[in-house]
Amino acid sequence: MATTGIRGQARQDAIAGWLFVAPALAILGIFLVVPILFAAYYSFTDWNGISPPTEARLIGLRNYYDLLLSGGIKQQDFFKALKNTTYFALGVVPLQTGAALVLAVIVNQRGLRFKDFFRTAYYFPSITSSIAISLIFLFLYQKSGLVNYVLEVITFGRWEPIAWLADARGLFHILLEPLGITLRTGPEFLRAKVAGLTLWDWISGPSVALTAIMLQNSWTTTGTMMVIFLAALQDIPSFVYEAAQIDGANNWQIFWKITLPLLRPTLFFVITLGLIGTYQVFDQIYVMTSGGPAKTTLTMAYIVYRNGFRNSEMGLGLATAVLLFAIIFLLTMLQRRITEAREG
């Protein structure tokens, strides 16, 4: 093609630019943008997933009402899932972020050997299929399995083996029991209902089964987070530490006053990844518990699937998904606010 000065070049670039992005754009448009529009529209319908989608009837805000206000089982399940997922995130995000940060700092010490080995060992679970890991842990969490065995050994036989994934008792309930507080003996207000669940139910904490999955999840993701922290740590120039040491700062002060503030953007990234991931926990639940026992591992992502595919209420499932989207969005924004406020 003959180029005629600047103008010809600009036109050629416009054509080339759009041609280069066109294939990617087509795929993202069809499989990302169109589905989002579908989600918004079909969440107002009664589509069951079996009849042709074109035959779905618009039913207004019915699905949202069922989930948020109806007082029925759909509302109960929604808030149970919200409660479980929130406990899940509140447990897993600090655990994996904290553990990853501590590990990264330890591995990054000067004079420490086998750095590459540790990095490889910790990262390994992150490359493994979540389904394969879930099946392995299903095996380890049996009553006669490895987890109970190890606990028995380190407590010199005092640990009573439990069926981890079949145990619906809430952790906080277990802690409250020795204090003489149960649903029967506790103060009256614990029996008050908030959004379909009793207050006693809300403060249950994660069930033993959910805790087991939380630990497994942290076990899987800590390695990724550690590698990210380690890269950021190695990005901090050594003269920063040297200057602090000349000024007489000890290791503890160096960590809190220098390392941590310099890691803030990485910390934000890791926590965001953690929140987005934990609020969508699905694979593990699907394979290990299907939401049981007693619905204590029902998560937001899992009820999206269950409402839609198992119960053939796609409209309801989509409304659940839209609400989950809103929750994740708000959390990310809130977290950004907090991080920025601290910096400001």
Partner: peptide, 9 residues
């Protein structure tokens, strides 16, 4: 997860 059902459609 938001794409789960709409992609099915």
């Amino acid at each position: 997860i938001v794409l789960l059902i709409p992609r099915f459609i």
